[in-house]
Nucleic acid binder design. Structure first.
Lengths: 147, 147
DNA sequence: CGTTACGTTGACGTCAACGTAAGCGTTTGG
DNA sequence: CCAAACGCTTACGTTGACGTCAACGTAACG
């Protein structure tokens, strides 16, 4: 009863030959590559963004999983929520096998862009106001008591 | 055993004579004025930002409390954390009775301003990147598999 | 054989600023 | 006289993206 469901060897720390890329990675490998903790990848899995294969209990990430991680982290930089990313990845998969869903993805990205620009506008306003208050020494200035 | 510890009448909704300002307000009055919920003011009290007088159980806010609320909400628009605001209000009080602490307050505000500007820079970068990705249709484009 | 490094599954903790609800008292107007 | 409106306290829920245990298995090195 050897627990050998597979002999493939994820590019673990003990076989640091980075030249050969077997297309399968251990969790630690990807954590190092993307500078995230295992908790993060497991969390993404919980959230349905990843579904790596298993060797017994251990997770085996494919090149596709790796690509998805890359996309997730890219989306994160743009402020996409994980739920949103899950949707987008689903669309992406559909686009892979079937019709191009790039259209919808672009739409989504443009929405997000609009949100970011709105946020920027608010932030800009706040910055200007704060600058003014500082310049005029009206920071924390008592308002005239309306009596 | 009348619960009459005081006869002062906070300018409640039933005495809407806004012309007379007794310098004391009920929670509802200030909630309407500043468009916050009672929960918010009680929360600020919990956090040590406010300490209104009491008439039995009921809160009686003074003109000073009202001014503090104004400052808190102003700070909120600039992204000051409540803990930070508490410190600033303390400095403000010290400045009232003693030396001018305006200096330190300005410093704090300038720090916050710097943070906001840094945040805006990041946001700007992200916006530009996202714009580029959208324009070049490289959103969710698969990276070349390094094999 | 022991140590070290890595992996696993729960499950609860964190942070901020409140929201929400339960259950109660008081005051006021119709 | 009763209900509405207001107030109070206590305490748990919310949101997001993980962190941080605990308790254990497994594999390789020396």
């Amino acid at each position: 009863m050897t627990n050998c469901t597979s002999d493939i060897d994820p590019a673990s720390h003990h076989s640091p030959d980075l030249a050969i890329d077997p297309g399968v990675y251990g969790i630690g490998d990807l954590c190092r590559e993307f500078e995230v903790t295992p908790r993060t990848l497991r969390f993404y899995e919980d959230k349905g963004l990843l579904a790596p294969a298993r060797d017994g209990q251990r997770r085996l990430y494919s090149a596709r999983d790796r690509a998805r991680i890359r996309l997730i982290l890219q989306g994160r930089r743009f402020g996409f929520a994980l739920d949103e990313m899950r949707e987008l990845l689903d669309l992406y998969d559909i686009g892979d096998r079937g019709r191009m869903q790039a259209h919808r993805i672009i739409d989504h990205a443009e929405q997000r862009l609009a949100e970011m620009e709105a946020q920027r506008a608010e932030l800009d306003t706040a910055i200007r106001e704060l600058r003014t208050l500082i310049a005029e020494r009206r920071i924390f200035a008592a308002q005239p008591t309306a009596s």
